Amino acid sequence: MTISVTIDSCAWNFFFDNKYDLCVELPPERFSLFITREVELELDQIPDESHGVDKRLLKDYICTNIQLRNVETSSIFGFSEANVPGEPSRYGGFGQGTFESDIERDWRQREDTKRYVIDAPKRKSSFLRKDEADVSQAVASLSSVLITADAKKGPISVAAVNGGRVLYLSEFQNSGLKLADYIEQLFAEPGGTASLMEAM
């Protein structure tokens, strides 16, 4: 049984800077890798250049590792009517989207969670509201290990202190361990990975 890992968009910068080969760092026989649909939209909007910095090598690195390592996009099951007309789809249909568990659905519907996206302005480039990708990842951390470099207050930090499995890269860097070993040490239980659904 593999450990499910979700990768935040900011984690890709860390992987790129450290020249990680994800086939080696997170081998497929031990880990299943995902990005949320919202993060996929963010990654699609990385420009070729930003503030005088060439981003083309980063973009190529991300695309290559997603393909070589078979990183899957996770989305919530929903029919096309649930998507906002004229915007990129958030929901996946049959064979694409997955059903949310009761815990994940309850977390998404909490007033504290919804307030992060309801009144936030949309970004023109991705159509995402300010913390929409973070909310999707906070929800994902309830059933998957989320790798992030984002330690600011928000949906992810709230999830981290309320049962979410969040791996902060700043803490990992100080561990002296390989990434795969660090994840297994923090989140694996004897006999397989701990299911947060069963624990709550």
Score class of each variant (00 low, 15 high):
residue 136 S to H: 09
residue 36 T to V: 01
residue 113 T to I: 05
residue 87 E to I: 06
residue 167 L to H: 02
residue 10 C to T: 15
residue 139 V to Y: 07
residue 32 S to N: 11
residue 49 E to L: 05
residue 132 E to W: 05
residue 135 V to Q: 02
residue 82 A to R: 14
residue 24 V to L: 15
residue 22 L to D: 01
residue 171 E to F: 08
residue 115 R to E: 12
residue 73 T to N: 09
residue 157 S to N: 07
residue 193 T to I: 13
residue 45 Q to G: 06
residue 95 G to M: 06
residue 139 V to F: 03
residue 2 T to L: 12
residue 65 N to Y: 06
residue 194 A to Q: 09
residue 111 E to M: 12
residue 121 P to T: 04
residue 68 L to C: 10
residue 60 D to K: 11
residue 146 L to K: 03
residue 43 L to F: 00
residue 152 K to L: 08
residue 76 I to D: 06
residue 5 V to Q: 02
residue 174 N to Y: 11
residue 32 S to C: 10
residue 15 F to L: 00
residue 49 E to R: 05
residue 62 I to R: 02
residue 20 Y to W: 06
residue 156 I to N: 00
residue 167 L to R: 01
residue 37 R to G: 01
residue 178 K to C: 08
residue 53 V to Y: 13
residue 137 Q to V: 04
residue 141 S to C: 08
residue 75 S to C: 05
residue 30 R to P: 04
residue 30 R to V: 12
residue 86 G to E: 07
residue 19 K to L: 09
residue 76 I to T: 14
residue 36 T to I: 09
residue 105 R to T: 07
residue 54 D to V: 01
residue 17 D to G: 12
residue 184 E to Y: 11
residue 134 D to Y: 04
residue 178 K to A: 12
residue 60 D to F: 12
residue 142 L to S: 03
residue 144 S to T: 10
residue 133 A to K: 01
residue 183 I to P: 00
residue 75 S to T: 11
residue 50 S to L: 15
residue 180 A to G: 06
residue 119 D to T: 08
residue 46 I to T: 02
residue 165 R to M: 11
residue 127 F to D: 04
residue 177 L to Y: 13
residue 154 G to N: 02
residue 58 L to C: 03
residue 35 I to Y: 04
residue 120 A to W: 02
residue 57 L to D: 10
residue 38 E to M: 10
residue 128 L to V: 05
residue 18 N to M: 09
residue 143 S to W: 10
residue 147 I to Q: 04
residue 169 L to R: 10
residue 150 D to S: 08
residue 182 Y to N: 06
residue 144 S to H: 04
residue 147 I to A: 00
residue 183 I to H: 03
residue 88 P to I: 05
residue 160 A to G: 15
residue 96 Q to A: 09
residue 58 L to K: 01
residue 103 I to N: 11
residue 63 C to K: 14
